[in-house]
């Protein structure tokens, strides 16, 4: 578990992270979401021990990570601008990391690079941006650390590759204690991968939510009522988060469990009802509206 307690980090007087508290549990894919400058990279650098917090403490499995090789062995950091030695190949990097990380799995490295059609004997300098990201993630996975910290690493990866990486994560998580922490400024990059999302804004955590839990508490329903009176009875009975209508067709996002909403719908006269799937975006819109933010501006406008 990564425990961030009251952490503050300033750069030349600017507070990049401000009294942040956050907990990242093992065995999940954690998404750190936030605009540029929200503090994602700074937070990942502090977790990985690259920089030291000015205040507060970051504990990885109850140990401070800064300048602590024992903790750093459990972490692998893939920065947004991945570094590979000049003129090196993927195999060279793997050999180097194998010497550093005791559990580095060279066999797995060879296997995954083959699966992803990454030429491990080709100079990384000649790779495309996306291929470099893939290579960095593969190296991180094969280092067999407990935590894989990826800064904007998934941004720009094509859906097929994202799915492949997601599968790799799932496999790793099923086999051992492993928790990827993925930072992105775009919600859509994370929604199909992460289990939990922490929304960072201006150096603080706006909200942190388990997606399943969040989805359970919100429902999206499409309904045509027989009369206005039925519609009013329905809206009185539930907590409406958002509502839209096209003629007599209403689409509501409402708080409550699926069963609760179905029960209420059963008590009013409707012509047509349908429970719709809820996107992560809608969950966040609803959640952040509660605290007075327009999430569209924060994480959706690229």
């Amino acid at each position: 578990m990564i425990d961030i307690k009251n952490v503050t980090k300033r750069f030349n007087g600017y507070e990049a992270i401000s009294s942040m508290d956050l907990t990242i549990n093992n065995g999940i894919v954690y998404g750190l979401l936030g605009t540029n400058g929200a503090g994602k990279s700074t937070l990942l650098r502090m977790i990985s021990g690259v920089i030291k917090p000015d205040e507060g403490v970051i504990l990885v499995d109850n140990e401070n990570s800064y300048d602590n090789p024992n903790v750093k062995k459990k972490l692998f950091f893939v920065s947004d601008d991945q570094y590979f030695f000049a003129h090196s190949t993927g195999a060279d990097m793997a050999a180097y990391l194998q010497s550093i990380y005791e559990n580095f799995d060279m066999e797995q490295f060879n296997k995954i690079t083959e699966q992803l059609a990454l030429d491990k004997d080709r100079k990384v300098d000649t790779f495309s941006k996306g291929m470099k990201k893939q290579m960095a993630i593969v190296l991180g996975l094969c280092a067999k650390t407990d935590y894989l910290l990826c800064d904007e690493t998934f941004d720009g990866l094509d859906p097929v590759m994202r799915q492949a990486i997601k599968s790799l994560f799932a496999k790793e998580m099923s086999e051992r204690s492993f928790a990827p922490v993925l930072a992105s400024h775009n919600l859509r990059e994370l929604e199909d991968i992460c289990d939990t999302i922490g929304l960072l804004h201006k150096g603080g955590v706006l909200l942190a939510k388990d997606l399943d839990e969040a989805k359970c508490g919100l429902q999206k329903v499409q309904v045509v009522f027989e009369s206005d009176a039925d519609r009013e009875r329905f809206t009185d009975a539930v907590k409406i988060v958002t509502s839209n209508n096209s003629g007599s067709m209403y689409i509501y996002t409402v708080s409550g469990t699926r069963d609760e909403i179905i029960t209420v719908l059963g008590s009013v006269n409707t012509v047509f009802t349908e429970m719709l799937p809820l996107s992560l975006e809608e969950i966040f819109i609803s959640e952040t509206e509660v605290v007075g933010y327009d999430v569209k501006k924060l994480i959706l406008e690229d």
Binding site: R45, S48, G49, V50, I51, D67, P69, N70, V71, K72, K73, L75, F76, F77, S79, D81, Q82, Y83, I100, Y101
Partner: peptide, 15 residues
């Protein structure tokens, strides 16, 4: 170079 600092300082090596 920040990317090099990130790489090297994240490795499990004491400063």
């Amino acid at each position: 170079q920040i990317k090099k600092v990130d790489f090297y300082k994240a490795l499990p090596v004491k400063e």
